[in-house]
Design a binder for these strands. Sequence first.
DNA 1: CTGAAAGCGCTAACAA
DNA 2: TTGTTAGCGCTTTCAG
Lengths: 343, 343
Amino acid sequence: MGSPTALMVTSSDIAKEAGVSQATVSRVLNGDPRVAKQTRRRVSDVIERLGYTPNAIARGLVTRRSNLVGVPIADVTNPFYPELLEAIAGQLSGHGLKMVFSNSGGQPEEAYTRLLVEQRVDGIIFTSALLDSPTVRSLAERRFPMVLANRYVDGVECDVVVGDNHGGARAAAEHLLELGHRRIAVLLGHPAASTGRDRLAGFRAAVEEAGIELDAALLRPGGYSYDAAYAETLALLELERPPTALFCLNDVMAFGALNAARRARAAVPRDLSVVGFDDIRMSAWEAFELTTIRQPLAEMARTSVDLLAQRVEAPASSSRRLVFPSLLVRRSTTGPPRSRADA
Amino acid sequence: MGSPTALMVTSSDIAKEAGVSQATVSRVLNGDPRVAKQTRRRVSDVIERLGYTPNAIARGLVTRRSNLVGVPIADVTNPFYPELLEAIAGQLSGHGLKMVFSNSGGQPEEAYTRLLVEQRVDGIIFTSALLDSPTVRSLAERRFPMVLANRYVDGVECDVVVGDNHGGARAAAEHLLELGHRRIAVLLGHPAASTGRDRLAGFRAAVEEAGIELDAALLRPGGYSYDAAYAETLALLELERPPTALFCLNDVMAFGALNAARRARAAVPRDLSVVGFDDIRMSAWEAFELTTIRQPLAEMARTSVDLLAQRVEAPASSSRRLVFPSLLVRRSTTGPPRSRADA
DNA sequence: CTGAAAGCGCTAACAA
DNA sequence: TTGTTAGCGCTTTCAG
């Protein structure tokens, strides 16, 4: 078992070589202004010459800061998350922070969270927390620095950044209603995700205000997944009286629906109107031109990082809840229903 | 400045509480078989009771192992990478390793690599290395554990996992040639990426063997990016004599091309045949049904992790180069050219 | 089987 | 302005 980096240069090596104390090397490293210009120069030269790289592990042990932030993500292959991830990564590096990433889907939340805590990450940004997550709850009780991005957890006191899911879904409903749809199906998200609950609630509220009732048989589980949405849409389309419109609780499911419609030779929006949620980049592609609800994803991600950074500095400050507006983006997947017979 | 985790329980706390030495606690933690069953039990109970989480930082300082692996990725929002990332993440956690992720695009390679080295990651998996990368070269010289996944770097001695880019591109060319195409455009990748170079070489070789010459004016820069591909395709379509076929050096560019074609009202494959490379999941979607070259991405990713894990154990062992086969997948974006006038 | 003690490489008082 | 010293929380000999 060979030690991987046995011959790593240390600050003591630098000190010896430069003829100063190890503490001085440390000062140079941390830009301590008290170090004499000359000394600094001498030390810097040696550092350069020996190719010294400070050991963040040792530093972390004493500073109690790892500059590491945990970012568990349910499913990176869901294109919603890469957009979030990109923005988070960018903002983190602006704060001098590094990301410990976990593709959390599948594995038990508690396991990967424990790993993050062992690693002494300075904080965690949860992007896919479930409503009743015991892990998040326990972390919150221990006042562990974290922010819930995109989704929140019921009754947990901590920083939260979300979009206006209720309002966005309401806008989606109003759009569909206005077009004349009455028989509307919904592809649900994860049953335990706040996003799904809020979006359904907003949608339902608007529909009921219009004096219409959502047919429970048309509320289908989708789990925010492409595959499930694809299958459900196929099934929906085979119904005796298929819906004229379909509200998908996220864009990825809308793509599943659109592809299923194509497969079933159902014309969109003539036979079926489709609305998504999130407005990820692909939604604007000519292949989809999806009508959807836009959320300022990048901004939300950046804000999450900022909040976390502040939280790490001031763990005891009161927690904040930021809600970002959402906006209906009309594109080509929605139109009036074909016949008013269904209305 | 409040210390974030000031009140973290340490192994000494556990020791005191359990009435044993701190060393014994450490032994229990690491499953040392010499510890008496009774002692182990007592210690474990206290650990449980006080909610103790071992400090990986402190451990890393002495073991010289962080169990962290750096994974820089050029652009997570390019859907090719999430598929790689997912597989890498899964395999890493199987090895008890955690991922330090960087969305490297934009920032200088040297900067984020330095961060990883400071963090004392056990190794790095490069997924987007450029052919002449000085950083990779210098890391290799210092025998830093790393594997080049997907792309390699010229003249660098280290573990490499790639697909058969040359062979795959050749298959793409033969397919197009067989269909009767003679006027073929190519959307290139990153000029300094081995993938792009090899794919172009393979494609060119096959075309020239058929006694045809690639029109240099139809070799367009695409940078593996959707946007560039979209723009270039639009331009290509406006040519006096547009190409009848387009070989895109990755799938994402093919999607750009397909969407551009739609925008320009060019029928695929009637007016333009399109071939991609990678066969990411989306390529099979009804919206695209892209003819492309399949690479065993997940398998390549898993292999990369395995190689790295082995390399960390045996830094001096001789390096390996694994090439995975590629395969033409015929779908709906390719067909014979409309008129033989162009042939 | 268990404890004592010596660090790992760094930062941060405290002196000088 | 610089050096000395004491740890940070662990693992790992070395004794016993």
